[in-house]
């Protein structure tokens, strides 16, 4: 059984890491990062079967691909706090000569990263390729992917979604971060996505919802269920309903903090709402 309290404590620390990273360099994407903190912590601490250390090919372990690379602050925080690199390195986020580029990349050799992402819509295809390679290699482990909801406006996703079902890639679990926001406003206002469930089902995927994507117990339960639904001839999609900016009251329920850093005062407020649990870097 998952120790939900322990995972929640890590989430609180991850929120602090996110705020402190973007505040220091006055740039980055806190909104989507905060909304996915529970997902990342659950995935890396509870759901994925991971080996010690890091090698690119990742044979004999589960893999994760982040398609919406702009939420790098949460990815970096959880990778560091899962042992891929020293947490002190979070201090170098977006700085010159850092391995922690604005958007994640393999180019600087940061452990835990297997593809560059930032230009949207490409991650699912790469995850499917890695899943095909796992099948060829007789590796029974799974491949996880996270996409933003606005990102599904990119056409390449639908090529990939069609391919996955047609080819019965059932070792992939793709999660959509349904926060309903994108840079210019709500997804409904910018380019309405319609029913994600109906779309994925029509394409031949198994679909399940995590209605409370910022409730740790719900996220763990949902991802475990997704895992149990894989391996049955169909790719699995998790529609994860989250709140952008979750855990920092003035950042919640708005697209305003998609790509904006808090000032000193806002940082103090945000940190006060998320008391240190595991120690700041």
């Amino acid at each position: 059984m998952a120790d939900i309290q322990k995972l929640e404590a890590l989430v609180t620390q991850v929120r602090r890491d996110i705020l402190r990273q973007v505040h220091k360099v006055n740039s980055g994407h806190p909104g989507g990062s905060l909304g996915c903190a529970e997902f990342f912590v659950a995935l890396y601490q509870e759901i994925m079967d991971r080996k010690e250390g890091f090698d690119m090919n990742g044979l004999g372990e589960d893999l994760f691909f982040l398609s919406n690379g702009h939420i790098s602050p949460v990815f970096y925080s959880v990778l560091a706090r899962s042992g891929y690199f020293p947490v002190e390195e979070l201090n170098t986020f977006r700085l010159l000569n850092s391995r922690l580029q604005g958007h994640p990349t393999t180019h600087e050799g940061l452990p835990g990263i297997r593809m560059a992402s930032g230009s949207l819509g490409q991650g699912l295809s790469v995850a499917l390729g890695a899943a095909e390679a796992k099948k060829l290699n007789g590796c029974g482990h799974k491949v996880y992917a996270l996409m933003g909801d606005g990102e599904l406006q990119e056409g390449q996703n639908w090529e990939a979604i069609m391919y996955a079902a047609a080819n019965k890639i059932d070792n992939v679990i793709a999660t959509v971060d349904l926060n309903g926001q994108q840079i210019d406003g709500s997804t409904d206002d910018v380019l309405a996505l319609g029913s994600m469930r109906a779309k994925f089902e029509a394409f031949g995927w198994t679909v399940l919802d995590i209605e409370k994507g910022n409730d740790m117990a719900s996220v763990v339960k949902g991802l475990q269920e997704a895992k149990s639904l894989s391996g049955q001839g169909k790719p699995v999609c998790v529609l994860m309903h989250t709140i952008m900016g979750n855990g920092v009251d003035f950042m919640m329920h708005t697209h305003a903090w998609h790509g904006k850093a808090p000032n000193d005062e806002q940082l103090a407020t945000g940190l006060a709402q998320n008391a240190e649990t595991l120690g700041d870097y």
Binding site: M115, L124, A130, A133, L136
Partner: peptide
């Protein structure tokens, strides 16, 4: 992969992860 070249390039990139 069908008439879906963008997906083809992404799939190929992913297949290298695993040594293909």
């Amino acid at each position: 992969v069908g008439i879906a070249e963008a997906n083809m390039i992404g799939l190929a990139a992913g297949m290298t992860i695993g040594g293909k």
